[in-house]
Amino acid sequence: MFLIILNIVFCLAFIGFAYVNLNDPDAWLWVGIYLAVTVCCGLFVFKLYYPKIYLGLMAFYLIYAVILFFGKDGVLDWITKYKTPSIVETMQAEKPYIEKTREFFGLLIITSALTIDFFAVKFWL
């Protein structure tokens, strides 16, 4: 029962994340990213599980997260060059590192959700 509730919460959260990304210049990418994980979590509620899709999405998200971490004005620059200023003071990403750092943590969140389902499947299905 816990996994059902958790995946319903995941679905609602990721739909919300997709919605707030509709006005981004790269909305085509981020709405797709969030909707893909939303579909996986939604299908999991109905005991539909596709491990190859999970692994493919997790690999894509983690590779993209590494790119955002090490890229110019990425997370590593946010930590070392900019000394970790707040990335949540305003919704506007006025500095280049803000958007990349937020995207990095978004990828970690959705990868975590997929990882939970990937390993919890043996207890659920």
Results as ranks from 00 to 15, higher is better:
I98S: 04
Y97L: 05
S86K: 06
V66Y: 10
I87Q: 02
G71E: 01
A65L: 05
T90N: 15
T90Q: 10
T80D: 15
K83Q: 08
K95D: 08
S86Q: 06
F69T: 04
K72Y: 05
K83R: 13
L76D: 03
R102S: 10
F69G: 00
D73L: 10
I109L: 15
I67Q: 11
K72G: 07
L68G: 00
L108I: 08
V75L: 10
V66K: 08
L76T: 07
T80W: 13
E89M: 11
S86F: 09
M91L: 13
D77I: 09
L76Y: 14
L68T: 00
L68A: 00
L108C: 08
G106R: 06
F104G: 02
V75A: 02
K83C: 08
M91Y: 13
L107Y: 04
I79N: 05
I67R: 10
G71R: 07
E99L: 12
K83I: 10
I109F: 12
F69V: 04
G74R: 05
D73P: 06
G106A: 04
L107R: 01
I79Q: 04
F69A: 05
D73S: 13
L68Q: 01
M91N: 13
F69Q: 00
G71K: 07
K95H: 11
V66F: 14
L108K: 03
E94T: 12
V88D: 07
E103I: 03
Y97S: 02
Y64D: 03
T84M: 15
K81H: 15
L76P: 09
I98Q: 14
T84D: 03
S86G: 10
K72E: 14
Q92K: 15
I98V: 10
L108A: 07
A65C: 05
V75G: 03
F69M: 08
K95I: 09
F70W: 11
Y97R: 08
G71A: 14
